[in-house]
């Protein structure tokens, strides 16, 4: 009863390479464990201490250097930062993505735009902020411009690919009835892709929120990130870090709920 196994797909060069890489990672991970240099620390004790710190952070949060009003205000600053960058980025990206989408604009112009934003996206947001800080100085301005820049790169790709996925027949039908390019974009392309555009914009808003937290710490953009930086690196107060972490987590959760609700509402009403 020993039947030969029937493979589901033919082995290819790329599947072989993938298996090779994954096996390599596995081997390196196992080997790496034997070369860990723990100095003279007792690994067991260190793990317990780390867990204890985590417990203090998450279950004994306190406010020491700021009060509720300040915390909420600073959270507002961070939210404002992410809102502004998403708004600016989305408007610019929407306008440019009409020209970048292969089924709407000139293919050559589209390729140039896509290549350009690929480069923009390849550089991390933090680096863009630091690059713009040369001109604007470290602070909120550099953060908004730098984060906005990366947002355009991200959303332009997302938007234009949403446009490319729409049924080409709809464009053909409106073109055949004599509609102009702008009319086709606003009467067919946008209504058909609205849910997708909203989703992408909200995902980017969430990304921008976490980035804005990091920018507060790394680029002096202010907001809750700066307080987090002060609590951890300046006051070494792990309980205050815990409080701020809870605040940020809850905000992210609320945003996620709002985003889901909006998407649902939009899907139902159309």
């Amino acid at each position: 009863m020993n039947q030969p196994r029937i493979p589901l797909r033919k082995p290819t060069a790329s599947s072989f390479a993938l298996n090779l890489v994954l096996t390599g990672f596995l081997v390196l991970t196992v080997v790496g464990l034997f070369f860990l240099d723990s100095k003279k620390a007792d690994v067991g004790q260190a793990t317990l201490k780390a867990l204890d710190d985590l417990r203090k952070m998450l279950f004994e949060p306190v406010m020491e250097h700021l009060n509720w009003t300040e915390a909420i205000t600073q959270l507002g600053v961070t939210l404002g930062l992410s809102f502004l960058t998403t708004l600016f980025g989305a408007i610019l990206a929407l306008f440019l993505s009409f020209f970048a989408a292969r089924n709407l604009g000139n293919v050559a112009i589209g390729n140039v735009l896509k290549a350009f934003v690929a480069v923009v996206r390849a550089v991390p947001t933090v680096l863009w902020v630091l690059i713009f800080a040369i001109g604007a100085g470290l602070g909120a301005v550099a953060a908004v411009v730098g984060m906005g820049f990366h947002t355009v790169g991200y959303l332009l790709k997302a938007y234009s690919e949403s446009f490319e996925e729409i049924d080409s027949g709809v464009i053909e039908a409106l073109k055949a009835s004599g509609a102009s390019w702008w009319q086709i974009v606003f009467q067919a392309v946008l209504p058909a892709t609205l849910t997708a555009l909203l989703s992408w914009t909200f995902i980017r808003f969430e990304i921008n929120f976490t980035t804005a937290v990091a920018m507060g710490a790394a680029a002096g953009a202010g907001g809750i990130g700066f307080d987090l930086f002060m609590a951890s690196s300046h006051y070494f107060n792990i309980r205050e870090v815990g409080f701020l972490t809870w605040l940020i987590l809850l905000t992210a959760l609320v945003m996620e709920i709002i985003a889901t609700r909006l998407r649902e509402a939009n899907r139902l009403q159309g």
Partner: peptide, 24 residues
């Protein structure tokens, strides 16, 4: 022009789709 796959904007109403014929 009329098409095999109708080529309507699915998310819009019948009236909106019909009025698209006036865009030109």
């Amino acid at each position: 022009m009329i098409f095999q796959h109708y080529n309507l904007v699915h998310r819009q109403t019948v009236l909106e789709n019909v009025l698209h014929g006036r865009l030109g």
